[in-house]
């Protein structure tokens, strides 16, 4: 029994390390590829490894939503638009580091140090042991019950935000087509 548990733990650790490094590597790849098409493909890998991390954190529903919404819908739209606009290539590190690049890297490093210090000061060793979660934690039923009881307002506001975004997308698309045909824009 204990051997099985140990093997399971080692497996979980291996998957966790693999997913975490895949996540970091593909994130760096997204910002350093010169071709936006490759960047979008790397972002799909990033989202997939994040979904694996969510599964390890026993959030099955969020992982499924991540794969369906992000890797499915959003990234397909991204790839369509990238193929449509046919963007020019851009080499991100050409011409040596400018002041903006140095500033961005410094700001990111400062944020990282700040986050580590704040978490380290506040956690005070309590990060070592986490709560045991029940088997229903993160299941669709659990999420649905929370959405329809405690977080009903957030649920409804989310639906309105999505509706407004859909209307905005339609208006942005039709507006440019009309002005292209010589008709006065809205």
């Amino acid at each position: 029994m204990t051997v099985v548990a140990t093997v399971g733990n080692v497996l979980v650790w291996a998957v966790w390390v693999l997913a975490a490094f895949a996540c970091l590597g593909s994130g760096v790849a997204v910002v350093s590829f010169s071709n936006p098409f490759y960047s979008a493909l790397a972002l799909i890998g990033n989202l997939g490894s994040l979904a694996v991390l969510y599964l390890l954190l026993s959030s099955e529903f969020v992982a499924a939503a991540q794969v369906l919404v992000y890797a499915g819908a959003v990234m397909v739209m991204f790839l369509f638009v990238i193929a449509y606009v046919d963007p020019r290539l851009e080499s991100p590190w050409a011409g040596g580091p400018g002041w903006q690049a140095i500033g961005a890297v410094l700001a990111a490093a400062a944020l990282l140090v700040e986050i580590i210090v704040v978490i380290g000061l506040n956690a005070d060793g309590s990060l070592a042991h986490s709560h045991d979660v029940g088997g229903t934690f993160g299941s669709p039923g659990y999420i649905g019950r929370l959405f329809l009881t405690d977080h009903l307002l957030a649920f409804e506001i989310t639906s309105i935000v999505l509706l407004v975004a859909a209307i905005g997308g339609v208006i942005l698309g039709s507006h440019s087509r009309r002005s292209e045909e010589g008709v006065a824009p809205l």
């Binding site: 939503a65 991540q66 959003v74 990060l127 986490s130 993160g138 999420i143 999505l162």
Partner: peptide, 21 residues
Amino acid sequence: RHLDNGDGQIFALAVMAVAAS
């Protein structure tokens, strides 16, 4: 997951919807 509290997952789903829009 660490605090055994479902609110974080709800908020993550809301963030996902906002990112999609």
